[in-house]
Write a protein that binds this DNA or RNA. Structure first.
Lengths: 182, 182
DNA sequence: TATTGTTATACTCTATAACTATA
DNA sequence: TATAGTTATAGAGTATAACAATA
């Protein structure tokens, strides 16, 4: 949702009464950690999508390429498991990347049911280019922060993540196709 | 996407080479501000959706209710504009809330094309309950942070938002139905 | 002629469940 | 009988464009 989605008013403990006064979203919106992190997270994801667009690569395709690169030769199912992508969705994703000769399916002689995923040379090159763009994106995001401030931000965010019971490294958005990274 | 979506490796300047080594997402993932804020933002949104679920209210419906509350009597179009919701989508949203007698459309004698939106008593009550849940959510998110740390986190996030050219208070996710707040 | 609200159509994405081939 | 991959079907959500009423 949008501006009015902010759930915490200017004063955290002011209570529901402030909902009905004349001060709308514009002033109260950015005082809630929940709304702020959700808003910025979404904007970052959208921004990253645009950053990757020139490569004709979606964030989730970048994620998939990276997963294949990280453990080459794994079965389609295994990689889908790690990314929490159901088997039937993996098919289309792998199809698209294979059609562009970025990855390839190979038969596994030991178990002819499985298809081992491997990167091609073109796939490696594209990952490198995407990675360079991502690093640039990250640097732009943090352009206003010193190294110490950046570490501080990450430390604070991790403590919020812990409150959510969030497992490090797993982006739930994968399932819903909202994805991004810097 | 998921874990492998992190674009920045453990060392921010290490470069694409680290893509091909044996260290996968698990260790590198949470070192990028972009990935971290996007991941947590998504998790917060999902969490908030579950918080609201007992009220049978979606985050975007909460946002819409709040927008109506903030400027009662505004036309459907005006409120849609503020929330960046196109007119044709507003119809279904307002239909749903009106069917539950949370808001109502009234004819405007001065311009009979427009429908002024007003909250009902039930709508006000539901907002209050949703708001209480949102405050609890925010407190849980920040349960591990002192007041000073919370302000620090918000200040750092705002500086990242500024780098993105993000207008305070407008949650772009409204358009894409990924929405939340604490 | 422009605008508000509405409706209709087509398209995308996803989940679910069959289906095959191997094991 | 179970599993990896695939395909088919149906459903949700959305964008786009037409439409009616009013200005």
């Amino acid at each position: 949702m949008g501006g009015p989605l902010d759930a915490a008013p200017s004063a955290a403990g002011s209570g529901p009464a402030s909902l009905h006064d004349a001060t709308p979203e514009s002033t109260a919106a950015f005082h809630s950690v929940g709304f702020t992190v959700s808003t910025i997270g979404y904007a970052v994801a959208r921004d990253f999508r645009q950053i990757l667009a020139p490569l004709e690569l979606e964030p989730r395709e970048f994620a998939l390429l990276r997963a294949v690169a990280a453990s080459e030769g794994q079965s389609q199912h295994a990689i889908g498991d790690r990314l929490q992508i159901p088997p039937s969705r993996m098919v289309a994703f792998v199809d698209a990347l294979e059609a562009r000769s970025l990855i390839e399916r190979r038969h596994n002689p030991e178990d002819r049911r499985t298809r081992a995923l491997h990167l091609t040379g073109a796939g490696r090159e594209l990952i490198d280019r995407a990675f360079a763009l991502a690093v640039g994106h990250e640097q732009r995001l943090c352009g206003d922060l010193s190294d110490a401030e950046r570490e501080q931000l990450l430390a604070l965010l991790r403590r919020v993540a812990a409150q959510l019971g969030l497992a490090p490294g797993v982006h739930a958005a994968l399932l819903d196709s909202v994805v991004a990274d810097g």
